[in-house]
């Protein structure tokens, strides 16, 4: 990468995906590959990292849930507004033949990007949400030919009732899966990683820690155990690497580096 200077991009379209998530379509490409992230800058406000939901060499898609101060500011943006983008940062998903995807929260979006690019693989794609109105990208995912979509909602309003990890357990039990891929809340990813470990198969986990610079300098996103910065050693890490992280499934750190339990 030649520099880490943000470039201004115009919002071309905004798609309301569910009650809390909007997809922002930007008129820029950063050549991102599935699993990577970009830093999104709103001048005079802040800058935060977001997983790439799609980058086809022409436009960049970001699926953003309004859950904090910055993401709510993102949701106030209108078509034609500009944001700064820098990246892509971090590691990518590595493809396997038969893959099981487990996405919770916004996590279905980056996994959809990966599914779309992995045309030669067979994918069981499990999307979970608390209810029907919080499901993400299921319309897009269901159109992919190499994908079997499974839906789980906490309240049973659509798909199977209960945690999406229960669906993963069933998928793994039926056999044949080479690798589990998971993006979303860490407790969910922790369960998925343990299931993969138990089944004796590999997993790729998209680790989320408080990132500032995004390129391995500031140190805020370093994990305990291996000590590596998540922004360059991850976000996508394989099972062996994740099992070396002492805080995985237990705690993360805030902007001062102080521990916060999950």
């Amino acid at each position: 990468m030649l520099d880490t200077i943000p470039r201004m991009a115009r919002v071309k379209a905004i798609l309301q995906e569910n009650e809390i998530v909007k997809t922002f379509v930007l008129d820029i490409t950063v050549g991102a590959e599935p699993g990577q992230f970009v830093n999104v800058w709103i001048p005079r406000v802040d800058e935060k990292p977001f997983s790439v939901a799609y980058d086809d060499g022409h436009e960049l898609h970001l699926a953003i849930a309004a859950v904090g101060d910055f993401s709510r500011k993102m949701h106030d943006l209108k078509v034609g507004d500009k944001v700064g983008i820098r990246g892509p940062f971090g590691s990518k998903f590595k493809v396997a033949k038969r893959m099981a995807f487990l996405g919770g929260g916004y996590g279905a979006a980056p996994l959809y990007f990966f599914a779309k690019s992995a045309k030669d693989s067979q994918i069981d794609f499990i999307v979970g949400a608390r209810s029907k109105n919080y499901l993400l990208y299921t319309d897009r995912i269901s159109k992919l030919e190499n994908v079997t979509l499974h839906i789980a909602t906490d309240d049973g309003s659509v798909g199977s009732k209960g945690y999406n990890t229960e669906v993963l357990k069933t998928v793994l039990a039926s056999g044949g899966i080479d690798c589990v891929y998971t993006v979303g809340p860490e407790i969910m990813m922790y369960k998925a990683a343990m299931m993969a470990k138990e089944a004796g198969i590999d997993a790729q986990i998209s680790m989320e820690r408080y990132m500032k610079c995004g390129f391995g300098v500031c140190g805020n996103c370093c994990v305990d155990g291996s000590g590596v910065p998540t922004c360059v050693a991850g976000p996508v890490m394989d099972l062996a690497e994740v099992l070396k992280i002492e805080d995985f499934g237990k705690y993360h750190r805030n902007n001062l580096g102080k521990k916060i339990n999950f």
Binding site: L2, D3, T4, I5, P6, N39, W41, V45, D46, E47, K48, G84, R86, K212, C213, F215, V217, C218, N220, N255, L256, G257, K258
Partner: peptide
């Protein structure tokens, strides 16, 4: 004592230089 840093962007870089204002955040 605890000390808050600055908002992002905090670090930018080119092939020739890096510029940072992280703001010395610390947990005490």
């Amino acid at each position: 004592h605890e000390h808050l840093g600055h908002a992002n962007p905090t670090i930018i870089s080119t092939q020739n230089w890096m510029l940072n204002a992280v703001g010395i955040p610390d947990g005490g």
